Deep mutational scan, measured.
Amino acid sequence: WIARINAAVRAYGLNYSTFINGLKKAGIELDRKILADMAVRDPQAFEQVVNKVKEALQV
């Protein structure tokens, strides 16, 4: 799951650890299995999560 998430978030200019930190700051409580599945099956929803994380990180 970690490898999938890392590959997906790198397309948005983040790395895995920064993304996970941003999830916590944004108050998003999705587990890694769901995030990895979302990255593959629903990229639009995953992009929305990434955008919320970037807002929380102020990137």
Rank of each mutant, 00 (worst) to 15 (best):
L14D: 01
L23E: 01
N6L: 02
N51P: 00
L14C: 04
F46W: 08
A56G: 07
A39P: 07
K24H: 09
A45F: 10
K33I: 10
A56M: 08
E55D: 11
I2H: 01
V50H: 01
F19Y: 02
L30Q: 13
I2W: 15
R41E: 13
N15H: 07
A11M: 13
F46P: 00
N51S: 09
R4A: 14
E29M: 12
A8F: 02
A36T: 03
Y12D: 02
A39I: 14
V59Y: 09
F46A: 00
I2E: 10
E47S: 08
E55T: 12
I28C: 10
F46R: 00
V49I: 11
N51I: 14
T18K: 12
V59A: 12
A39V: 06
Y16I: 02
I2V: 07
L14R: 00
N15A: 06
V59P: 13
I20E: 09
L14N: 00
R4D: 14
A8G: 02
I20H: 04
N15K: 05
Q48N: 12
V49G: 00
Y12S: 02
I28F: 07
V40S: 13
M38S: 03
G13H: 11
Y12I: 02
L23C: 10
R32N: 15
A45W: 12
R41Y: 10
V59M: 05
K52I: 15
I34T: 12
V50P: 00
F19N: 00
N21H: 13
Y12A: 02
K24D: 06
A7N: 13
I20S: 11
V49Q: 03
I5T: 01
A8D: 01
R32A: 14
K24I: 08
V40C: 15
V9F: 01
Q58L: 11
A11E: 12
K52L: 07
G22A: 04
F46H: 00
T18N: 07
I5K: 00
I20L: 06
L57H: 05
L14I: 07
Q48V: 08
I2N: 01
F19R: 00
Q44M: 14
A11S: 06
E29G: 11
V49F: 05
A39K: 03
V40A: 13
D42T: 11
A26K: 03
R41F: 09
A8Y: 04
V40L: 07
Y16S: 03
D37S: 06
K54P: 01
Q58T: 09
K24W: 08
A3N: 07
L14F: 06
A56Q: 10
N21D: 07
D37Q: 07
T18E: 10
K52F: 11
L35V: 05
D42V: 10
R10E: 10
I20V: 09
A3D: 13
V9A: 09
Q44C: 14
M38R: 02
V59L: 13
F46C: 03
K24F: 09
L35I: 14
S17R: 10
A39F: 06
N51M: 11
A36G: 04
V40G: 13
V50C: 13
N51A: 08
A8H: 04
V59K: 13
A36F: 11
L30C: 15
V9Y: 00
E47G: 05
L57M: 10
S17W: 15
D31K: 14
G27E: 04
A45L: 08
N51H: 13
V9D: 00
I34Y: 14
I20W: 07
A11I: 13
Q44R: 08
A39C: 07
F19D: 00
K33N: 04
A8W: 03
L23M: 10
A3E: 14
D42I: 08
